[in-house]
Every structure is written in structure tokens, then in C-alpha cells.
Write a protein that binds this DNA or RNA. Structure first.
Length: 262
DNA sequence: ACTAATGTTAGCCG
DNA sequence: TCGGCTAACATTAG
């Protein structure tokens, strides 16, 4: 599930659920999601702290407290749940943070591909996010163009490379390229100036809608609404969509709408 | 039984 | 150094 729009939804949830509230209890039900921090140190660092305004960079969520920062990454199946301590605990609830005011935050994740990190200060936050490219929501057109021009790989690979640009995942990349009428296999540095402008515009439009929806919505008018169909059809031109594999990820595109750049 | 799934990373190769 | 590929991580659903 989690790409930038999902993580932004978690950020908004965290802000409304936890901002200003103090951590009363920390329960780690599965230490497999902790990275570089023990359950004891996590508890000692967080209990008694109050959450301040959370931030997001790419697919990372930063739960700030004014002291240490809890960093969350949701992998492919993670989510953040805000509820009551009385809610039934589910099988994949890995970490529970009980907050003042009868609230409880939960890091829920089936596959445990990523998890939780703890940074003692901003220096350590910066170190953990050191390899991240500019955030896809915040990047300006010039910087975006510079990212594309400086990579010789395929444009889809560049869009999903978190060190080049942070936030886009497999679904968003396919969706944005389809809207911009660019084939995922074209070389990023072969894009023309109009290509780059169109790609930037469509990235912004797609992100704006997806952030409003809180996910990459599988709407009928979106490519994403059809990628799991048995015989998918392009919702724009009716041509049969193509499927392939790029960098190990399933890739869907329209051979008619997204012509070979050459 | 086999495959793919919205993520990331180490290791290998050219 | 860069880009591309594969396996691995852990788990479930079709």
C-alpha cells in the first residue's frame, strides 16, 4: 500500500491523533520491526514524551517529540492505526504506543519488510535520511529536470529510485508515465524539455489527487484501476495494455498512448 | 505447488 | 562510477 500519498495520510493521522499527547506505554509485540534500537531503549526514549508536528520525506514518516524522533517506514504492507487501547489487537500489530487521552497508535505490518528507527537528535535523523533524493511533492521543476538529466537509466527506474526522487512507488510511476504519455523504458536523459515539463505537470496532478484520496486510487479513469484486470484495456484509448517487468517490478503501459520515444 | 504483491538493499556483472 | 539484474527479507492471496 504505502507510497507517498499513503504515508502523507499516516502523517495527517498521526498529527490529529497524537500531536500534543504524551506517550504512556510502549509495547513491542515483535522486535523484528525494530532497527538499531531495542524495545527497552525505545520505551525509555519515548515514555513521557509528547509528540509534536510530524513530518514526511518521501516514504518516511518522522514522528517528532521535541527530543528523539521515531522514524517509520511502511514497506509494502505497513500501516499506522490510531484507535483506543481497548480495540482488539490484531495479528500484525507489531508496536503499540498508548497515549494520553485514551488513544493508542499502532504500527501494523504483515510482511515486516521495513519498520521503526529511533533517532536521538536531528543529526541522526539527517544521517538516516542521507541517501534520500528530494521529496516528490516538494521538488521544483528545475530540480526535477536536473534529476532526469543526470540519470542515464530508464525513466521508470529513475522515478522509483528513492535516492534520485523520494516518494514515488511502482503504481505511481506507471500512472504518471501513462498520463505523461511516456514509455517507461525511455532513457531519462533522452527526455526533451517538453517531455520533462509534461512529466512534472502530470506528477504534480497525480500526486495532488492521490494525496487527497490518501492512496493511489484504483479509479476506472486511472491506469491503476486496470492494472490487475485479467486482460487490461487502456481507459484512454481502449488498446490492450502491455505488461512487463522492470527492475523486478510489474510494469503496465499503453503501447498506443505511450509511444516509443525514438 | 507456484506466483506475484504498492519496498529496499546487498552482491554480482558488464 | 553507473546501470541492470537477482536474491533475500516475511507473509498472504489467488
Amino acid at each position: 500500500m504505502p507510497e507517498l500519498p499513503d504515508v502523507e495520510k499516516f502523517r495527517e493521522m498521526l498529527e490529529s491523533c497524537a500531536k500534543g499527547r504524551a506517550v504512556q506505554h510502549v509495547v513491542v509485540r515483535d522486535t523484528g520491526v525494530l532497527h538499531g534500537v531495542s524495545a527497552r531503549r525505545l520505551r525509555d526514549a519515548l515514555v513521557g514524551r509528547r509528540f509534536t508536528r510530524p513530518e514526511r520525506h518521501g516514504k518516511w514518516l518522522l514522528a517528532r517529540t521535541g527530543g528523539p524522533t521515531l522514524l517509520l517506514h511502511f514497506g509494502m504492507t505497513g500501516s499506522l492505526v490510531c484507535g483506543s487501547p481497548d480495540d482488539a489487537v490484531e495479528a500484525h500489530d507489531r508496536v503499540l504506543l498508548t497515549l494520553s487521552g485514551e488513544r493508542q497508535l499502532r504500527y501494523r505490518d504483515q510482511r515486516k519488510l521495513r519498520g521503526l528507527w529511533l533517532a536521538d537528535d536531528d543529526t541522526e535523523v539527517a544521517r538516516l535520511l542521507d541517501d534520500q533524493g528530494p521529496d516528490a511533492m516538494a521538488v521544483d521543476r528545475a530540480e526535477f529536470a536536473a534529476v532526469l538529466s543526470s540519470h542515464r537509466g530508464r525513466v521508470k527506474t529513475v522515478l522509483t529510485d528513492q535516492t534520485a526522487l523520494a516518494g514515488l512507488g511502482n503504481l505511481l510511476a506507471d500512472e504518471i508515465l501513462w498520463r505523461a504519455r511516456l514509455r517507461p523504458t525511455v532513457r531519462a536523459n533522452d527526455l526533451t524539455e517538453p517531455d520533462r515539463r509534461r512529466l512534472y505537470t502530470q506528477m504534480r496532478r497525480t500526486l495532488r489527487s492521490a494525496v487527497t484520496a490518501g492512496c493511489v486510487p484504483p479509479r476506472d479513469s486511472w491506469l491503476t484501476g486496470h492494472r490487475d484486470d485479467p486482460d487490461p484495456i487502456c481507459p484512454r484509448c481502449g488498446a490492450p495494455l502491455h505488461r512487463s517487468r522492470m527492475a523486478g517490478r510489474g510494469t503496465v503501459w499503453c503501447p498506443r498512448c505511450q509511444p516509443d520515444g525514438a
